[in-house]
Simulated scan of single mutants.
Amino acid sequence: MSKALFKMEVKANYKLFLLFAGILTLYVSVISAMYDPKLGNSLNEMAQSMPELFAAFGMSNPGTTLLEFLITYLYGFLFLLIPFLFTVILSYRLIAKDIDQGSMAYLLNTSYSRKQIFLTQLFVLVLGVFVLLLYACSLIVVCCEVMFQGELELLKFLVLNIGLFFLHLFLISLCYFFSCLCNEAKYAIGFGAGFGIVFFLLQMLSQVNDKIDWMKYLTPFTLFQPDALIHYEANGFAGILIFAFTSIVFMVFTLYRFKQKDLHL
C-alpha cells in the first residue's frame, strides 16, 4: 500500500464523506427522536392502512423495544441504501474514473505497482464505508443515551452493526470488481449500481406479498437478518460468514483481473 496515494485520496474525497455523514445525521437524529413505545399502536395502524408500502421498506413491524424500532426504520432500508450509494460514488472516483480517463496508465508509470494501487484504493474505499457506518452507529448511541438512557441494548446493537458492515463489505467488493473490470466508467457505475439496485428491488418485492416471497432467494440482502443477529441465532451469523467469504473471493479475483488488464492512455 502507498501512504502518499492514500493521503491524496483521503484529501480528494473527504467532502463526499462529509456529505453522506450529514445525510445520515439528519435521518438518525430524526428517527431516533421518534421512538415512543406509546405510539406503537398508532404506527401499527398506519402500517395496516398501507401494508404493501410499509412491507416493501421493511417497516411493517415497529417492534416493542428501542432496538427493534431502530431496526425497522433504519436497518431495513436507509442503512442499506445510503452507504451503498456512497460506495458506488467513491468506487467510481477511486478507480473507475482513472481507468476511463486513461490516467491509471500514467499512475502505473510511477513507482507504484498494480498491486499497491489496487490495495490502496480498496483500503480507502473500505475505510470510508467503515468510518461512515461507525459514525452513524456512534450517533445512534449518543442520541439514544441522551433521549432514552439505558434503553438501547448495546451488545446486541454491536452484533447488529457487525452484520451490517459485512453486508456492505460484500457490496464494496461487487462495486470494486466492476470498477476494475470495465474500461468505461458508465459501465462500471451501471453494473455496480445496477446489480445493487436490482438486489434492493427484489428484496422489497419479496416483502410485499407472500406469493412472490421466493424472490428473497435471488438477493444477497436476505442473508442480512437483523432479528436473527440480535437474538444470536445461527442463521444470522451464517450470513456474516457468507458475506465475508464471498467478499474475499471477489477481491482476490478482482486483483488477479486488474493485474492482467490492458490499460489505455
Rank of each mutant, 00 (worst) to 15 (best):
M1R: 06
K3T: 14
K3L: 13
L5E: 06
K7S: 11
K11A: 05
A12E: 02
S29N: 04
A33P: 01
D36S: 07
G40F: 13
N41C: 05
A47H: 11
A47Y: 07
Q48V: 01
P51I: 15
F57D: 09
S60P: 00
L66R: 03
L66D: 05
L67F: 13
L70E: 15
F77H: 00
I82V: 10
I82W: 05
L85M: 15
L85T: 11
G102F: 13
G102E: 12
S103K: 12
L108H: 12
N109F: 12
T110H: 15
I117Q: 04
L119G: 04
L119M: 10
T120G: 05
F123E: 04
V126Y: 03
G128D: 04
V129Y: 07
F130W: 14
V131L: 13
L133Q: 15
L134Q: 14
L134R: 13
A136E: 15
L139A: 13
V142I: 14
E145R: 07
V146Y: 09
V146H: 11
M147E: 14
F148I: 14
L155G: 04
F157Y: 10
V159Q: 01
L160Q: 00
N161E: 02
N161C: 01
G163Q: 09
L171C: 03
L174R: 13
F178W: 09
L181V: 06
C182S: 10
K186T: 15
G192R: 07
F199M: 13
F200G: 11
F200D: 12
L205V: 09
N209Y: 12
K211T: 10
I212P: 05
T219I: 11
L223Q: 10
Y232G: 01
N235W: 07
I240V: 05
L241I: 05
L241V: 07
A244D: 02
S247M: 03
S247V: 01
F250M: 03
V252P: 09
T254K: 02
Y256G: 01
Y256E: 02
Y256T: 03
K259M: 01
H264T: 15
